[in-house]
């Protein structure tokens, strides 16, 4: 069998696109873990809520006659705002009262929250998967001029998520709030002594993370044309794998981890069998945690007695 470059390129870009969405969701996990050391199990459900909110907004706007990109942008923005509110509320209800409790308590609370949100959407909306309106046109003429190496949906996903990630990196690097976030992640007590309101920073982290997850949810829903109440679990687990792969707590790590995981899955599905892409993700998760818990870009934690 000779090497089919066109096929390879197709797989490469679809893997990259998938990876960019994993990276978007993974950022939420990694930022929260960096600041309060909690695996926010409910993060995948926030992503799912984002997809549902976008679906509802797109449904409402569908009849007015806006251009497709107008609907997509408004749906994404509303989903991001609402999901930030969900993220903020979840933190206040389920995690904040548990500061200072044993390490397992917030994790169990997070699992409970995830179960709760999933069933809340199932009961409030539907247990079937719902079609998401086809917003993205099938063809972009400029992409066709460039040899049609990507589908329009993939192109929008990749470009948006890359832009957002750059923006986030700049925000964390250069703004005062970003600096405060980094300080809190390094040493919360010390940051508080220097006048940083740690509670506000924690809320901010949840808000930003949830908005990114909601954006990911909207983009995926618009791309695949399907939304269901159960999509959060798998996406959440994969994004978490990406965060761990890159080194949990590290923001560039989450981006890198997402892209690597997306490419690995894409190539497994493309050259081996799509049955095993999920197995691959979970196996990667288990293997990294066992053999290199610090991930690609993380630093090993040293436990002092």
């Amino acid at each position: 069998m000779e090497f089919d470059f066109q096929y390879f390129l197709g797989i490469f870009f679809s893997g990259l696109t998938r990876g960019s969405i994993y990276a978007l969701i993974a950022l939420g996990y990694t930022m929260v873990y960096g600041i309060i050391g909690l695996i926010n199990f409910a993060h995948g459900e926030i992503y799912m809520l984002g997809a549902f909110t976008a679906l509802i907004v797109a449904g409402i706007l569908g009849g007015i006659g806006l251009p497709w990109w107008g609907i997509l942008v408004i749906a994404a923005l509303v989903a991001m705002v609402w999901c930030s509110a969900y993220g903020y509320t979840v933190e206040k209800v389920a995690y904040k009262p548990l500061r200072g409790a044993s390490r397992l308590a917030p994790l169990i609370s997070a699992i409970g929250m995830s179960t709760f949100l999933q069933n809340y959407v199932q009961l409030a909306q539907t247990s079937n998967s719902v079609p998401f309106p086809r917003l993205i046109p099938r063809r972009f003429s400029f992409l066709q001029d460039m040899g049609n190496f990507m589908a329009p949906g993939d192109f929008i996903m990749l470009v948006t998520s890359l832009l957002i990630m750059v923006a986030l990196a700049l925000f964390i690097r250069y703004t005062k709030m970003g600096k405060a976030m980094r300080a809190t992640a390094q040493n919360r007590k010390m940051a508080m002594l220097l006048g940083i309101d740690a509670d506000r920073i924690i809320s901010l982290t949840f808000i930003i993370g949830s908005a990114l997850a909601a954006l990911g949810g909207t983009l995926i829903a618009a791309r695949t044309g399907q939304v269901g109440f159960a999509i959060g679990f798998l996406a959440g687990m994969k994004a978490f794998t990406a965060a761990v792969l890159g080194g949990i707590g590290s923001i560039p790590g989450a981006m890198l981890g997402g892209l690597v995981l997306g490419l690995a899955e894409g190539f497994t599905a493309g050259y081996f069998s799509s049955d095993y892409e999920d197995v691959l993700a979970f196996a990667l998760l288990v293997l990294i945690l066992i053999f290199r818990p610090a991930g690609l870009l993380g630093r090993a934690a040293i436990q002092k007695v």
Binding site: L49, F52, T53, L55, I56, V57, A58, G59, I60, G62, V78, W82, Y120, V121, A124, Q125, V130, P131, F132, P133
Partner: peptide, 10 residues
């Protein structure tokens, strides 16, 4: 949005 609004997209 999620609890009180139901849309049938089609």
């Amino acid at each position: 949005p999620v609890l009180c609004v139901k849309v049938a997209a089609r």
